[in-house]
């Protein structure tokens, strides 16, 4: 595959892959940088890509593997912050986004889920892949994907209700 071919077949996937990377890494800028590296990796693997029946699925798998490696390399740490102090005294561009309070809560809650659940939610709810496609990308069984999806949806609801006190009456 030459560069022109690559531009037609792989580059259009960039935003989708970026969203997946961002979901896994929980960080916009980190995901941006990662996307550069992932695209270069895909370019270096272009001969494998040629032989692969499903370029999209292959690309998602490469993305997922790269991000998981980054997450593993980052040491596991517990970080506690006092948001009130920081939000009042720092410039926070995120705060000026149009997203409503509720949407921010959802965003926080998803970030709190374990990696696999975040990934499956991203692939299903946002990117709209079928269970079979997801199973293929994650190299696992359809049954397992259903279990992860189920847990993800339930835990997300639970986090919103319990941790963030998502209380209908408040809204």
């Amino acid at each position: 595959m030459e560069l022109e071919d690559f531009k037609i077949k792989v580059i259009p996937l960039k935003n989708k892959l970026f969203r997946i990377a961002k979901r896994l890494l929980n960080d916009y800028e980190l995901a941006e940088d990662a996307m550069q590296e992932i695209m270069i990796k895909l370019w270096e693997k272009r001969f494998e890509l040629d032989k692969h029946p499903n370029i999209e699925a292959f690309s998602v798998t490469v993305t997922k593997n790269y991000c998981i490696d980054i997450l593993r390399a980052k040491k596991v740490s517990t970080i506690e912050i006092n948001e009130e102090i920081l939000e009042n005294r720092m410039d926070n561009p995120d705060n000026s986004f149009e997203k409503s309070e509720l949407q921010m809560l959802v965003s926080k809650a998803i970030a709190y889920l374990p990696e696999m659940q975040r990934l499956v939610l991203q692939l299903r709810e946002i990117e709209g892949y079928s269970i079979e496609e997801i199973a293929f990308m994650l190299d696992t069984s359809i049954g397992n994907v259903r279990v992860i999806l189920s847990r993800a949806r339930l835990q997300l609801k639970s986090i919103l209700i319990n941790k963030y006190k998502f209380n209908y009456e408040r809204y």
């Binding site: 040491k75 740490s77 517990t78 970080i79 912050i81």
Partner: peptide
């Protein structure tokens, strides 16, 4: 004081 950040990680 008010603590606004705490990081715990292994020996850190």
């Amino acid at each position: 004081f008010e603590k606004f950040l705490e990081v715990k990680e292994g020996k850190k």
